[in-house]
Simulated assay, not measured.
Amino acid sequence: MEYSSEFPTTPKDVSLQELRERLAEFAEVRGWEQYHSPRNLLLALVGEVGELSEIFQWKGEVARGLPNWSSDDKEHLGEELSDVLLYLVQLADVCGLDLGQAALAKIVKNGKKYPVTNQKEN
């Protein structure tokens, strides 16, 4: 199995399954699976969350859409968010969990725990 670093030139939705498969292939061709225990992936994830937190650490409140951020700052944010997502996908995979299904089930559970009691009127 050969890992391809090529990406489609047109934007498309990416599934968690596609990410899982690409990450597994990426690790396999490099012989990294031996290091991808749940504990190690969790620690790596925590480290990446820390790096993500540093981006916001001294900025105070930030407006939606980041209108005052430079393109370099937004690119850096995208990289750190991606690192968090990729480690989370890998962690779920090595634990044998379907992250997408677990997330959908959690949304349903949260809907029951926090029912709508007051809807806004237009």
Rank of each mutant, 00 (worst) to 15 (best):
Y3S: 09
S4V: 02
E6D: 15
F7Q: 10
P8I: 09
T9W: 05
T9S: 13
P11T: 11
D13A: 12
D13V: 10
Q17E: 10
L19Q: 06
R20Y: 00
R20D: 05
R20C: 05
E21C: 00
R22T: 13
R22Q: 15
L23P: 01
A24G: 06
R30V: 08
R30G: 11
G31C: 09
E33K: 15
E33F: 07
Q34I: 06
Q34M: 04
H36A: 15
P38Y: 05
N40Y: 00
N40S: 10
L41R: 02
L41K: 01
L42F: 14
L42T: 08
L43S: 09
L45G: 07
L45Q: 05
V46N: 09
V46S: 09
G47L: 11
E48T: 03
E48Y: 01
L52W: 03
Q57A: 15
K59W: 00
E61I: 10
V62L: 02
A63G: 06
L66T: 04
L66Y: 09
P67T: 03
N68W: 02
W69P: 09
S70V: 05
D73H: 14
K74Q: 15
E75N: 09
L77P: 12
G78K: 04
G78S: 11
E79Q: 12
E79V: 10
E80V: 05
E80Y: 01
L81D: 03
D83M: 04
D83L: 02
V84K: 02
L85D: 04
Y87T: 02
L88E: 04
V89S: 06
V89Y: 01
Q90G: 07
L91P: 05
A92K: 06
A92H: 05
V94I: 12
V94T: 13
V94R: 06
C95D: 03
D98F: 05
L99I: 07
L99H: 03
G100K: 11
L104W: 09
I107C: 07
I107K: 10
V108I: 11
G111W: 12
K112Y: 11
K113V: 07
K113W: 02
Y114K: 08
N118C: 07
N118E: 12
